[in-house]
Design a protein around this nucleic acid. Structure first.
Lengths: 156, 156
DNA sequence: GGGAAAGGGGATATTATTGTCTTGTAAGAA
DNA sequence: TTCTTACAAGACAATAATATCCCCTTTCCC
């Protein structure tokens, strides 16, 4: 629901990357380790993000991926559009070419409110927001574990 | 985006049906005529809606489909759940079985606000709402045509 | 009972999405 | 220069979603 798995991988991969806050490129194998993100498939997804101007990539030694812009400037919608194409939100659900606000199809207005909500959220939510809430969550959970006396898990 | 085409067909088919406000069963061929809804595929979708308790069907002569409940009691979410299964909204985007509010996966909270918005909309929007806005739109467009002197299109 | 009319449901075809693998290409280090 | 290391990109496989088709069962009317 909502997102294709390609898009979900993109969001998760970018959140990981943003969470590191690294200035130097992070390579895929590194980014993926410890997660269940599919390495090869994510590589394809990241390629699209590079083409879409969301990511920058560097080949060879010391290579990897970096965000093309600061995390707070990367909106959810720019991620989605990089993966699924720019008209994903504006295309007619019926698929009629002649469909537009001027000459709408019967369904055109049906989905307008629901699409608008989603779009609003995506325009106002940035990668920084996602990464922050992700990190806050991790800290919160870690604290809970410590409180319960199960907190001998060290970062090696 | 948002809906699978199965779900979109379901919504459109149901909107058509609700718009007729017919007490007697409406048969598929009748419902579909004049639209671009794929007859055979919609038949499959309607089967699911029957199983899901959204539609009632009658075989044989005089048979067809009727709404199982009044249109204002059929919410968008009950339609979606009838097609995609009840956990479509609550399932983890990562697919972990152990994921829940109690022990969430890293993405669990990431999607919560966006899912909640969508869910709110679907819980509060009924088939009657959809059919009404659809009909209002049709009337509005018809009026515009008449104003432009192109209104010699009669319902036969 | 027999025939026509409706949906039910299985089988199958088609297409899109997702996932994997293999080779190519660029960059840096020895 | 040559070797290693990274991503790029094409080919391919597996799966899921979408779309059709055909025959079955039920129901009504004669």
């Amino acid at each position: 629901m909502i997102f294709s798995s390609s898009t979900e991988y993109a969001i998760r991969g970018l959140s990981e990357l943003a969470g590191r806050g690294s200035e130097v490129p992070v390579m895929l194998d590194d980014l993926v380790s410890g997660t269940d993100l599919p390495r090869d498939f994510l590589a394809k997804v990241f390629q699209k993000l590079v083409h879409g101007g969301v990511l920058r990539s560097a080949k060879g030694r010391g290579g990897g991926f970096t965000l093309a812009r600061p995390a707070h400037e990367i909106t959810l919608i720019s991620i989605v559009e990089a993966i699924d194409g720019p008209q994903i939100f504006d295309r007619c659900v019926v698929g009629l070419e002649k469909c537009s606000d001027h000459m709408p199809c019967p369904q055109h207005d049906l989905y307008k409110p629901i699409r608008q909500r989603l779009k609003d959220y995506m325009v106002t939510t940035s990668l920084a927001d996602l990464a922050a809430s992700l990190k806050a969550k991790q800290v919160w959970r870690q604290t809970r574990l410590v409180e319960q006396g199960m907190g001998d898990h060290k970062q090696s």
